[in-house]
Nucleic acid binder design. Structure first.
Lengths: 234, 234
DNA sequence: ACATTTTTCTGAACACGTTCAAAATAATAC
DNA sequence: GTATTATTTTGAACGTGTTCAGAAAAATGT
């Protein structure tokens, strides 16, 4: 609920150690029991510290989730490296990267909803649309920059520039779908990925057509203009 | 947190009255103080009933928000009627309807985030993607059915069929943007509407081109297939 | 009119996230 | 080595959403 919990720097070796202890306890419990069932008291107890101490290092329960999300992101990133080396077409890369994302997230489907739920709240520190500074978000977009950078497809420079962000946005949509996907083994989500990647590939070709230049320019200008949703300036 | 709060039918005239009393108190307080600042105890007190009694009629705090959302939806619907009578083109209608939606929601921007936050949670009873039965959602889509129905544009039948749902989805996206929009008077959101409506209009024309038939068919098939995200069957 | 069942309502209790003053400990200055 | 300051840690407290056993009141049956 509180938004601006001031920085909680670890000043000392002892502190670093305690922090790590609490975090690992939290990660364990969250993975085992999910979000609601994991209480701050349980985390503190498992870590062998007092409740108040847990709050000294992590401003809120939501902050623990952030760490969790960071972990899955790193996993996904690692799994992604060989793909970008092997595949060269945008379509193939996109397909693999997205499928990998979902399978990486798979173990946490049940409480991923909570993650997204808090992330969708503008007041939440986890909100991915807030502050450019949010390192998780930049990291996440960077993946799509790598994905686009040295692909062979003929894509006009203006589109190429905005494409990573647009793909990131698209990938957020996929995740949102997956969270709500109640089908067995999430086959629906994988089907959605297959179809939309195909469609997207066609759309990009289409948008790259010189005839589309004016429309494309306008659309991209809008995207650039509206990228920083959370910023106050008009 | 709890998902399936069983039906809370009002069995008696007295009950109906109490329920209305509680609801109006809740609506007042929510409007005045926002979500977090409005406690269930305050609602009960303002209504002159016990805390437990409030829970007898409304399964949770979230359920109160649902009522709130319902109210704004009805407001929007009413404001929409003259527009559909005056305007005949899809583009003009869409533009007005969306702008009206935002201005109707305007007074509640601050706690609309909370609404969306809980709505994004698959476990929440407010989740708009759950159960076909959800009447609010059907109502909401119906507006776009009316919007599309007797418009003059040449739109192929297959697209015309799915268009209401697609527009509803699009409108949800606009709202999500608006929630995160920190610009003064939400000028950014209005700009987004202007631009995307324009773009959408072009896209629909494009998709209506006979040459596009195969792609369109495939895309629409996918949409139809994946519409019921929340359903369990694959 | 009375008995029974159903509905409405109460107040206390629980568990949780979060806060805070202050104690314990470590780091630093002299 | 002692005093001072900074950091870490504690435990109790607060306010919250929610639950529940059962009391009060209303509806229903006979």
């Amino acid at each position: 609920m509180k938004s601006d919990t001031k920085a909680k720097p670890t000043k000392t070796a002892k502190g670093e150690q305690t922090r790590a202890l609490i975090l690992s306890s939290a990660l364990d419990l969250l993975g085992e029991r999910g979000y609601e069932q994991t209480t701050m008291r349980a985390i503190a107890q498992k870590a062998g510290v007092s409740l108040g101490n847990a709050y000294h290092y992590f401003g809120s329960k939501e902050h623990m989730i952030q760490a969790f999300y960071q972990r899955t992101h790193e996993e996904h990133l690692a799994a992604t490296v060989p793909v970008l080396e092997k595949e060269t077409t945008l379509k193939a890369r996109l397909l693999s990267v997205l499928r990998l994302k979902i399978s990486t997230l798979e173990p946490y489907h049940e409480f991923a909803g909570v993650l997204f739920k808090t992330a969708a709240d503008p007041h939440s520190p986890l909100n991915p649309f807030a502050h450019e500074s949010a390192p998780t978000r930049r990291d996440s977009i960077k993946l799509f920059e790598d994905l686009v950078r040295d692909t062979k497809a003929r894509i006009p420079a203006d589109l190429r520039e905005e494409l990573p962000y647009l793909l990131w946005l698209y990938h957020m949509g996929i995740i949102l779908f997956w969270i709500h996907d109640a089908s067995a083994k999430h086959t629906r989500t994988y089907r959605l990925i297959d179809h939309t990647v195909d469609l997207l590939d066609k759309l990009i070709s289409l948008a790259s057509n010189p005839l589309m230049r004016p429309v494309r320019k306008r659309a991209l200008k809008m995207v650039a203009d509206l990228r920083e949703v959370g910023l106050a300036e008009a």
